[in-house]
């Protein structure tokens, strides 16, 4: 058998699946977003019309799109720093030579990551129940009035953010731990001989050397958090007062509840462009920040 041909045979199944069920639909989504594909077109394709950029234009004039975008940015802007801070703290604690039974702690802290979002979101819904939830009960013990966590438009998104931090911090914790372990121990040794305190070692050795790991973690988490969907679907159904409608939730509703597939495709593409723009910007900022520190010394 010719080796060139063998290679293509090995590639064929995967490329066929990815081509037909991913790449092709992505291209089709761009086309679909330029049409008024709706329930009528679903019934009879002759009802389909090309509308150019109308769907995008209409989106920009739709208040719900802007609030969905605002909610999603809120989730990303608050959720990502909190998640990564939790991951960093957990990783630093676990990595400390003073920590006991490390494998046990690592497994326990990672456990929420492998659980099913829907199942644990259901748990949180009961824990944060206004009347019978353990959270409000605990708060009442220290004299705080019950909070309508998932029913108050001001509290619903913070509750979802708290859930996301709990569910996801273990993932980045593992990556950051690997980054910490890659820092040569003799650097700390030298700093200790020079009399540097623990906080100074952290600022001048740990953080700078952890920088590439942190950038990777930030970009992966930002891209992931923009895809918020299951949490509001299960915990709040987008409410109260649409305060937890995310961009993907809007896409799902437009597309599969109202069957406005043209509009929904435009929403999906907008989200893609936003994720792409934000992650590219972060990557640029990271690269720009690297040079002065790296070259001056």
């Amino acid at each position: 058998m010719n080796r060139q041909r063998a290679a293509w045979l090995f590639l064929a199944p995967a490329l066929l699946v990815l081509g037909v069920f991913f790449i092709l639909p992505v291209i089709a989504a761009l086309g679909l977003s330029l049409t008024d594909y709706d329930l009528y077109a679903l019934a009879d394709i002759h009802n389909l019309r090309f509308v150019g950029l109308h769907n995008y234009w209409a989106l920009l004039h739709r208040p719900l799109f802007w609030s969905a975008l605002g909610n999603t940015f809120y989730f990303v802007a608050v959720g990502v720093p909190l998640s990564i801070a939790a991951s960093l703290v957990a990783a630093l604690l676990l990595n400390s030579p003073l920590a006991r039974i490390r494998p046990f702690f690592r497994t326990v802290l990672f456990a929420p990551v492998v659980t099913t979002v829907v199942a644990v979101a259901v748990i949180w819904r009961y824990l944060f129940n206004t009347r019978y939830g353990l959270v409000n009960y605990g708060l009442a013990e220290i004299g705080i009035h019950p909070i309508d966590w998932l029913g108050d438009p001001h509290w619903a998104m913070p509750t979802i953010i708290a859930f996301a931090v709990w569910k996801n911090f273990g993932y980045n914790m593992i990556i950051i731990m690997a980054g910490l372990q890659a820092i040569p121990p003799d650097l700390y040794e030298a700093a200790r001989i020079d009399g540097a305190s623990a906080p100074r070692q952290f600022w001048h050795i740990t953080l700078p050397l952890l920088r590439p790991t942190m950038m990777l973690v930030v970009i992966l988490t930002v891209a992931g958090y923009f895809q918020l969907f299951a949490e509001p679907y299960v915990m709040t159904e987008g409410g109260p007062l649409q305060s937890t409608v995310s961009v993907l939730y809007l896409m799902y509703q437009d597309g599969f509840k109202w069957w406005n597939l043209g509009t929904a495709s435009a929403v999906a593409f907008m989200l893609f462009l936003i994720i792409f723009a934000v992650t590219t910007l972060l990557l640029r900022l990271a690269r720009r920040g690297e040079h002065p520190a790296g070259k001056r010394t």
């Binding site: 069920f21 991913f22 639909p25 089709a28 896409m251 893609f272 992650t279």
Partner: peptide, 29 residues
Amino acid sequence: FAGRERLFQALIGALVIPAQVAMLPLFLL
């Protein structure tokens, strides 16, 4: 094989596309 690196790079590049973008046409397909 010819074009190996380029094809691989293209696949890695496609990782930035969120899976949800494909879902609407995929449903129709």
